[in-house]
Design a protein around this nucleic acid. Sequence first.
DNA 1: CTGTTAGCGCTTTCAA
DNA 2: TTGAAAGCGCTAACAG
Lengths: 356, 356
Amino acid sequence: MILFDGAFKICNISAMDNSHTSAEIPVTLELIAREAGVSPSTVSRILNGTARVSELKRTAVEKTIERYNFQPNVIARGLAKGRTFSIGVLTQFIESPFYGEALRGIEDALAGTGFAPLFVSGHWNLKDEVRSMGLLQARRVDGVIVLTGKLSDEQLVQYAQRTPVVITGRNLQAPNLVSLNVDDRLGGYKATQHLIEFGHTRIAYISGPVDHPDSMERLRGYQQALAEANLACDPELIAQADFHESGGVLAINQLVNSRRDFTAVLAANDQMAYGARLALYRLNIRVPEDISLVGFDDLPNSIYTMPPLTTIRQPIFELGKIAAQTVLKLITGEGTPQSTPPVELMIRESTRRIRR
Amino acid sequence: MILFDGAFKICNISAMDNSHTSAEIPVTLELIAREAGVSPSTVSRILNGTARVSELKRTAVEKTIERYNFQPNVIARGLAKGRTFSIGVLTQFIESPFYGEALRGIEDALAGTGFAPLFVSGHWNLKDEVRSMGLLQARRVDGVIVLTGKLSDEQLVQYAQRTPVVITGRNLQAPNLVSLNVDDRLGGYKATQHLIEFGHTRIAYISGPVDHPDSMERLRGYQQALAEANLACDPELIAQADFHESGGVLAINQLVNSRRDFTAVLAANDQMAYGARLALYRLNIRVPEDISLVGFDDLPNSIYTMPPLTTIRQPIFELGKIAAQTVLKLITGEGTPQSTPPVELMIRESTRRIRR
DNA sequence: CTGTTAGCGCTTTCAA
DNA sequence: TTGAAAGCGCTAACAG
């Protein structure tokens, strides 16, 4: 295997010398103005469409802009206008498949508006969230979208005094701030109801962190569906986990060790359902023949799961989109908030009617 | 089900009225200086540690900063210093589980350096990539990391004339630009070799897009391993797909329809392997009993796949980290480029020794 | 050590 | 219509 003489390659080590960078005449609006024989204000006016400009000068300017491939400095513009045209987005993990969809929604809504998203991560960790919010503040974003997280209501309200805030996953009333929610409880309810309709009466629940509002709402939906069907809610059947795959694994083991029997499992999110799936496989328990499994979120992957996962679809892409639209409205002072689309039960192949 | 009277909820509609926003006195460096009884320069010096300042004034200033909760305006600072302290990152899909890891690496490397990443998406689409690069340019980022994509070498080189560029997934030599690579060919080679060692001789390959350099390199590794083992490379056993799950489904169907027999499949990435897995399941072909399956990337999910997927681990988090470190070095003009860690074969449960 | 004075690149009155 | 001038919030010589 002689072709591979190293496990990696780096090109152009000499490129590290970038001493030449210093030369270059920066192309600025002023330069354009001079070259086109007009004043800077005129160029600015053309760029912003702020006022009528004679056809003659306009074409002259446009030509020079073209020629120099001039792009106005958004930073400088921001300073002058007191607006940076960027929207801060506090997500939890930049690589999260779940929040990723929301980010895509935000990108989508912001495309073509002149505003750009600035993504920062909080890692489900108050300190990081505060630091990240500080970064956004320092960069004077015009608005902020907070995708859940651990910031206190007070912090959020205070933050909203300086900058418009849109927050998901919590109910909060304050000036300059709007909360956007999907109906987690309804989701938990629908999922449980589906299982009950399939004849299951012993339904285990793998919950997320107790301090996570979404998680608790879903649990409430589960409990309510149980209650409405006159089924007891056995606390032994509720395992507490952490929204991660590994938590799902642990939860299943714990549930099985408890020796309570159950014929179905509802996981508070898809990631835990993935972990649960693996744990069941290890225990030689078949899905859905022996146990039905339901997730929550409908991650892109859940169609390709083995078997494809029955789950609650959250309109998370749309939520991101609406959040972005809402924050823009807050900034410009327009009204009419949007409603978020409802959660939806996606019946796939991980659940089946119980054999009697 | 009376508790849910709507499938969504929006709070605080009245918050849309943000007319009060106009009041507020902005807290600036100048304000701090005045309140502390010193000149703006002194405050600036304290903030930047640019020069020694008497203990007396320092504490006075620090107190006022504290009192006003002052955060210097990074935008203004950027204008003055000719540096924005942000690094543009062109990714393809913000929600991609694969690039997500790289983004995390970038965040990780940038944390605490004062630089912030500005993530933009290219969607594997030249037009979007150009637009996104334009956005970065307009915002005067101090450096750019390009995670593969379709920009031409010329475009990249030209871009590097204005801003330091780090590019992954291609070999390019130019001033002010460095290319970072993982050894895709070696990955393809290792994966194939593993299959051959397990006794497989008829190994199908699901490729990515032909215009994708990573994809082609992996294919070459596959071919080389075959050649070294004196196995013929049957073109009928190579299905062309698109790096997405659905492509994996299609590829398997095509492969099976071709009526060539094979006992193993190597997919050029994990996502296609997921799709292949589903397609095989639909066809009642067991993995790994009937067919062994290997992926490429080692996405976080591949441990939780059914069965857990044998795959080539790409050090993509580390790659992101190194890319960020490299671009910082390019900016500050320091030297010593890093090497990227090698790819690694992760043997899990989707492959097994062929029964004879 | 510290204040004064010019800008950074753009927008925006205010006159002309 | 258009230009001159002032200013956005900060930094960086340059004196003192």
